[in-house]
């Protein structure tokens, strides 16, 4: 699946997008957020503050229990600050 990072999550992780193949037991957004830190210290640091994370699946806001599929576009970002 494709994953995108924005704002300080992008600078902290060090990339704006990547293709990931999580193990089969990663079924929801919550599982994904538990698994991503295993990819490196840049991930674990960036994803440390769970309450500052917002998630979109296929460009729609999604909650932690949302089920994810191989073809999904998942975006992780901080609370928005436009306007």
């Amino acid at each position: 699946m494709k994953i995108l990072y924005f704002a300080w999550l992008r600078t902290s992780i060090g990339k704006s997008t990547e293709e990931i193949t999580p193990p089969a037991e990663v079924k929801t957004i919550g599982d994904l957020l538990d698994w991503l830190p295993s990819l490196g210290v840049n991930y674990s640091t960036a994803l440390e503050k769970r309450d500052l994370l917002r998630v979109a699946v296929n460009q729609e806001y999604a909650e932690l229990d949302h089920t994810i599929n191989a073809g999904d576009e998942i975006a992780l970002f901080p609370p928005v600050t436009g306007g």
Binding site: F6, A7, A56, A75, F77, P78, V80, T81, G82, G83
Partner: peptide, 11 residues
């Protein structure tokens, strides 16, 4: 709504 939902971030 735009300020709390639209995916923009200010640096």
């Amino acid at each position: 709504y735009l300020k709390t939902k639209a995916p923009f971030w200010k640096l």
